[in-house]
Design a protein around this nucleic acid. Structure first.
Length: 577
RNA sequence: GGACCAUUGGUGUAGCGGUUAACAUGUCUCCCUGUCACGGAGAAGACCACGGGUUCGAUUCCCGUAUGGUCCGCCA
């Protein structure tokens, strides 16, 4: 169609130029015999000025129009607009298409609820704020492509239709029409393929990879999502992390012009859990966790403390007055979520502690607590007791809630760090079996190999997460290439040779033909876009996302299919009552 | 699988055991020559999510269901 440029291509330099613009009517301001139209295209808004409003056709919001006119300097510029110094003096306006009244206001300050926005996503996406998220997302991808290409990576696509693998997240299954009763699985990640590409000799691979996980959703979790998936050969952990830091630095620079200082800090998993109660700590504010079992309460006679393997606490400044009965009830509710019967809240008043729990404390313990936290009047101290793997996450969650509630996190600040040295194994609470913390191909740290025989839970791994502002923005591991160690790991996981063969057969085979030392990671593209775009909702950076019930509010997916389709696939569906 | 919160004109909110259900915004009509969240005047627009209960009376209180959101489990 006839179009001379996009809106934001124009500036004062173009005054006097005759242009033809295309776009949507964003806003109309009719002052009688002068009419203003804000015309929106993908680049942004520009003001159209119509001197003789009677001569133009009836136009309403979101009509698609073509405007022919002269670029003029404005009598009264608008500094808030990028094109605020100029306007288009319209000679003619042509309606290219009309629009129904939209169910939501198409402006950055839309007041529509997310439910409505998702139902009419195609309209929501017209909002400049939304388009900005996708610009950022695109810039991340372009930057990654360029950086990785320059570092001799090659992008290779791996299959979407894969063999089901028994470990890890639940998979989306795709029935086979040609093989009734058999199913493909959509990849949770290209994990095995990328390792096989290392066996295949590519040395440096990447892929902007779609991944699928049939798990319950969260504000930062979608069932289909995108990773910048990376694998390299012949790099040790620090060589690899240094390279990835370069990528992250470039991404921050190109998207938001933020300079990331390198090298990034490394914090061990253990330290992150002990100090912040999270393996993805937001370290932009304090309220750190303190160990109390060995210190303040070493002599405690309180039954709840004596029998607890750990007691930890934190001190929240200045919230004593707001800490009503209801607030304390909610804290206890939070504790129950984490499998603890409750927690203790103490208020610091008149250089002493108050609250229903003080009766269980000796004077010495009270003084010790105040000193431990350097607590002042108006502060509260929250204490949780129980198994460490519940106490720490609980206090970590409470810490984060207060950090947000008290606005302790400065906006537009970025906190990047590596969390390293994850344990190889965890003990599953229900089955008491040993399970791999990451996956069974994660390489144990050289200096921890002896623990595999002595006490596997003490063995740490070459595993690393990049944590940005309290989000796990990516993670990965070095992989095992020594088959003897691999056998030992399977043994610890309680897998027999037959089970290994059945579960990982072709993969284990492949590793026996000269596998290079290798390792990699995957960045969550959606999470990066979310962090850099400044939103806490991953749905904002995904064009057509699913809601928490894994339903697409616009298309209605998943939907029922016809009996013909099912017959062809040899599938019978149980009618749910 | 579990916990909590929400559901009121198109949109977003307020509200209360008895109301003409309020406000903002959007929409429509009229007026307006420099607006830009334009302004002014007026109008239309709501079985207060659904089902049951308590009550003389329920949009309001209670229970259930549905939908949505946040979290725990889960996410090698």
């Amino acid at each position: 169609m006839e179009r001379t440029c996009w809106n934001l291509d124009l500036s004062l330099a173009d005054v006097g130029r005759r242009v033809t613009l295309l776009g949507w009517v964003s806003k109309k301001r009719n002052l009688g015999s002068i009419l203003f139209i804000d015309l929106r295209d993908r680049s942004g808004l520009i003001q159209i000025m119509v001197k003789d409003a009677d001569k133009i056709p009836d136009i309403r919001n979101e009509y698609v129009i073509q405007v022919v006119g002269m670029v003029e300097k404005r009598e009264s510029p608008n500094e808030k607009m990028k094109t605020g110094a100029i306007e288009i003096n319209a000679e003619s306006i042509k309606v290219i298409n009309t629009a129904k009244l939209t169910p939501l206001i198409i402006a950055d300050e839309t007041d529509a609820l997310e439910e409505t926005r998702l139902k009419y996503r195609y309209l929501d996406l017209r909002r400049p704020a939304m388009q900005k998220y996708f610009d950022i997302r695109d810039t991340i991808k372009i930057t990654a492509h360029r950086f990785l290409h320059e570092h001799r990576f090659i992008e290779i696509e791996t299959p979407m239709l894969c063999a089901s693998s028994p470990e890890g997240a639940k998979e989306y299954l795709v029935p086979s029409r040609l093989h009734h009763g058999s199913f493909y699985a959509l990849p949770q990640s290209p994990q095995m393929f990328k390792q096989l590409l290392m066996v295949g000799g590519f040395e440096r691979y990447y892929q902007i990879a779609r991944c699928f996980r049939d798990e319950d959703l969260r504000a930062d979790r979608q069932p289909d999502f995108t990773q910048i998936d990376i694998e390299t050969s012949f790099l040790d952990q620090n060589e690899f992390l240094t390279m990835m830091e370069g990528l992250i630095k470039d991404i921050f620079q190109s998207t938001i012009s933020y300079e990331v200082k390198l090298p990034l800090r490394q914090m061990t998993y253990r330290e992150a859990m002990e100090r912040f109660g999270s393996d993805k700590p937001d370290t932009r504010f304090g309220i750190e966790l303190h160990e109390l079992k060995r210190t303040v309460f070493s002599q405690s006679t309180f039954a709840g403390f004596v029998n607890s393997p750990s007691i930890k606490g934190l001190c929240v400044p200045g919230v004593s007055r707001e800490t009503s009965r209801k607030v304390i009830d909610n804290l206890n509710l939070e504790a129950k979520k984490y499998g603890l019967s409750g927690l203790s809240v103490l208020k610091c008043e008149a250089k002493d502690l108050a609250g229903s729990f003080v009766k269980f404390l000796s004077d010495q313990e009270k003084l010790h607590l105040i000193k431990e936290f350097d607590a002042h009047d108006g502060d509260i101290i929250i204490i949780a007791a129980g198994p460490l793997n519940r106490v720490q996450p609980l206090l970590g969650a409470i810490r984060l809630n207060y950090g947000r509630q008290l606005n302790l996190i400065k906006p537009n600040t970025y906190d990047l760090l590596w969390v390293v040295d994850f344990p190889m194994f965890e003990r599953d609470i229900e089955s008491n079996k040993m399970v791999a913390s990451h996956h069974p191909f994660t390489r144990p740290k050289d200096e921890d190999l002896h623990w595999l025989d002595e006490d596997p839970t003490k063995a740490l791994s070459y595993a690393y997460d990049i944590v940005i502002n309290g989000y796990e923005a990516g993670g990965g591991t070095l992989r095992i290439y020594d088959q003897n160690i691999q056998k030992k790991i399977f043994h610890i996981l309680g897998l027999s040779d037959e089970e290994v063969k059945a579960k990982f057969g072709y993969f284990i085979d492949a590793l026996q033909y000269g596998t290079p030392p290798h390792g990699g990671m995957a960045f969550g593209l959606d999470r990066l876009a979310m962090i850099l775009g400044g939103t806490e909702n991953i749905r904002d950076v995904i064009a057509f996302p699913k809601n928490l019930a894994a339903v697409c509010p616009m298309s209605g997916a998943p939907t029922q299919v016809s009996d013909e389709q099912l017959n062809e696939l040899g599938i019978e569906v149980k009618k749910s009552s």
